[in-house]
């Protein structure tokens, strides 16, 4: 009974799927799907050698400080960093006093109240505060940015395919639209062509426009490429601040586990030592078994 009904149900699903397939094939043959414009012009992020990549990667503190400087002077006017607190900047190698000064002099105030009147007011951030948002809400952000919403950058390096590489490519990827780009996909009013962006046209004006736009405290020449790489590294830190302890802890734990597993293997072999002589793995993946099985099949085939 089960098999009879199973047969009917099976025929049903196979039939309907085949029916869908038939129409799919007809549609595919009659009008083959055209390559989309995004597919044709979109570029994958370029690879940059970041110090934090690889199983033992670490952040370059100097680079993070430079990247923070770029964020502060170029990005922070429009983009928030609201998962990161000023106190976290100590990770970049800033002293406690420097962190306090950075927080106190930050260009955006933390929403607060006037202690006398209770009216909304602002105060200077303290290290315990997270970076204040540049706009009070999304509507205000859109109103100030030609109806585009500058996203928060705290997790940008984890929220996009390609991570820091994507951010770097996007920042240096602005160019004139190619001549063969269809009219419908050309950047409209207030949009800029950028092949690394998902739909090719981004509302953010090119943020890094000239070498020397930022004067680095450590004297590194601030080329556009340098600034873009640095800020990408900084945003990777902002998204994954625990990367170094993860890599180091992981290595220690991995070594421990390998050691423990070797011991477990020796113990397993030891316990099975006597029984093992008589026990052979009979799994289907054992090459010896496969060979025997094939031989047996040949034999069975001849006899049958």
């Amino acid at each position: 009974m089960v098999r009879f009904f199973g047969f009917l149900v099976g025929l049903g699903f196979v039939g309907v799927a085949a029916w869908s397939l038939l129409w799919g094939v007809i549609a595919y043959v009659s009008e083959p799907p055209a390559e989309t414009v995004e597919h044709r012009f979109h570029l994958h992020p370029e690879h940059v050698d970041f110090s934090f990549e690889g199983p033992l990667g670490r952040y370059d503190r100097q680079q993070l400080q430079r990247g923070f400087q770029v964020y502060k002077e170029v990005c922070a006017a429009c983009h928030g960093l609201n998962q990161v607190a000023f106190r976290n900047l100590a990770d970049l190698g800033y002293s406690e006093a420097e962190v306090r000064a950075i927080a106190d002099q930050w260009q955006i105030q933390v929403p607060s109240i006037n202690p006398e009147t209770g009216e909304p007011a602002g105060r200077n951030p303290i290290p315990a505060d997270r970076f204040p948002d540049p706009y009070p809400n999304e509507t205000a952000a859109r109103a100030a940015n030609n109806n585009a919403f500058p996203p928060d950058l705290s997790l940008m390096a984890k929220a996009r395919e390609g991570g820091a590489h994507y951010i770097h490519s996007l920042l240096i990827g602005y160019r004139n639209p190619p001549a063969e780009l269809p009219e419908a996909n050309r950047p409209g009013q207030g949009l800029y062509y950028n092949p690394y962006f998902a739909n090719l046209n981004i509302a953010m004006p090119p943020p890094l426009t000239a070498d020397g736009q930022v004067t680095y405290a450590d004297g590194t020449p601030a080329t556009i490429n340098q600034m873009s790489t640095d800020v990408s590294a900084f945003l990777n830190w902002a998204a994954e601040p625990k990367l170094e302890s993860r890599h180091q802890g992981g290595l220690v734990i991995l070594i421990f586990l390998i050691f423990a597993t070797i011991l477990a293997y020796l113990s397993y072999r030891n316990i099975w030592a006597a029984a093992k002589r008589n026990v052979r793995a009979t799994g289907p993946l054992d090459p010896a078994n496969i060979a025997r099985r094939q031989a047996a099949e040949r034999e069975a085939g001849i006899e049958g």
Binding site: P55, H247, G250, L254, L257, I258, A264, Y265, S267, A275
Partner: peptide
Amino acid sequence: YYTAKDGFGLGVFLILFAILLFF
């Protein structure tokens, strides 16, 4: 017999898990 074998299997499993988790 099989606690020992499972212990070894668990070790291999945890190594792969740790690679994914930490790296």
